[in-house]
Write a protein that binds this DNA or RNA. Structure first.
Lengths: 237, 237
DNA sequence: AAATTTAATTGTTTTTATGACAAATAAAAT
DNA sequence: ATTTTATTTGTCATAAAAACAATTAAATTT
């Protein structure tokens, strides 16, 4: 069998990228969904996605798609799974490489692109999505928990300056549990990743809580390291 | 723009699956490589791979390919990354979904399929591979370490009956370090996953080491759980 | 048959991390 | 000045981990 003959028989697929965009509004973990503007399933909610172009890697495509939706560049993006069930897209055979993204919700600019109608939903209560997008969200949530249990990625969801109580409420919502505030604060500070600021945030209490910033240098160095950031992971994950 | 018009412009890709097959010979962690029997790069070493068929998911394809190489079914398989750089395959645009597999090296039957010449190589010293397969192996190794640090997957590499020293040498080679044997044994036994056998393996010592079997039921139940299997993960990972 | 050797197994102690809880503190509101 | 509320710091009991030591089993040598 010649090389040409072999290659002739090979099925070709359209390749899509779908993005689960996580945000945190100060209280709840959210995902960004779009209302589909084209068939099939026009008018239904879905993840933000698109097709991979000729000259692109999926990473490049994901960044491009994310920028078209949020206007943001340099977002934290992580490829986490490729979905390829033969019947996942009823119109045509498509495989989808799924990414999750973490953004500071405050930086998100609405309607920079009017092609899609986008909206934030609580991760715990979002509408029925098209195709296998519900599965994609659930797996993304699991992967986020798994990764965040030992890596310091959740800071990507916070603004530059944040308080310890805010950080704790983020962790509590991501892991769907609650922590002792004293122990949480001590564990976080022991990582040496936080730099205490002079100012306080007094919007939530009378005493006010000190702002902290991330030590970017230290953060980059320790991103990959295993830290035990959450108590009793087995009870949660 | 009509739906038909849009879909016309979409690039289609051939989709491949590549498998990193891990094995353990009692001393060293190994990977199974094949010598390519067809162009391009005929005669060079590569990972075992193949194209995804029309009616298959990538999981199905990976299992099919793995069976054709090893004769084994029901192998532990985990999709870990999709490689999609536009220039990764010089012949045609292909994206590859990569899997790593864990098998009991003793069950592997050589040359059930003479289409490929296969050979085991130490993970620390394997030949130059085609395309981006070197990257694939390195990432697979990382992912294996990452997962094995908190999940009990390494047992998939061992025969049904194994000794604690053998288990320890596997862990030591995977994590490229050494552990205190007393502490290691206590930690492993504390998982309640091991059932002590009556017989001993006396091939490696005068005293002999007791065989253990996996408690399959307990094992299945704990597969998803997060355990702390290796000491001082921060120093290693 | 006793002594020696080797590696497996079990035991002890020190050290560190964890979790539960309590106290002190800061600043606004009364 | 006092009360209130939430943040921040502190204490202590417990448990796990790591380092290290001792014992044991069985083959080999003397």
């Amino acid at each position: 069998m010649t090389k040409e003959k072999r290659y002739q028989h090979i099925t070709k697929f359209t390749v899509a990228v779908d993005c689960i965009v996580f945000g945190f509004d100060g209280t709840r973990l959210k995902i960004l969904l779009v209302k589909r503007g084209l068939e099939p399933e026009k008018g239904k909610w879905s993840l933000m996605g698109g097709f991979v172009n000729d000259s692109e890697s999926t990473d490049t495509a994901a960044n491009r798609i994310l920028k078209s939706l949020t206007g943001l560049e340099g977002i934290y993006l992580e490829q986490y799974h490729t979905f390829s069930s033969p019947d996942r897209d009823p119109v045509q055979r498509t495989i989808s490489v799924a990414y999750f993204a973490l953004i500071d919700i405050n930086k998100y600019q609405e309607s920079i692109n009017t092609d899609f109608e986008a909206q934030w939903f609580n991760i715990k209560e979002f509408p029925q999505l098209i195709f296998d997008h519900n599965d994609m969200v659930h797996l993304a949530q699991k992967k986020l928990q798994y990764k965040a249990a030992s890596h310091t990625i959740l800071f990507e969801l916070l603004p530059e300056k944040f308080t310890l109580p805010l950080l704790q409420s983020l962790f509590e919502d991501v892991f769907n549990t609650s922590f002792d505030k004293g122990n949480f604060s001590r564990k976080m500070l022991s990582t040496k990743l936080l730099i205490k600021q002079k100012e306080k945030d007094k919007s939530n209490s009378k005493k006010g809580a000190f702002y902290y910033k991330l030590d970017k240098k230290h953060y980059q160095e320790n991103l990959h390291k295993i830290l035990k950031l959450i108590p009793n992971p087995n009870q949660i994950l």
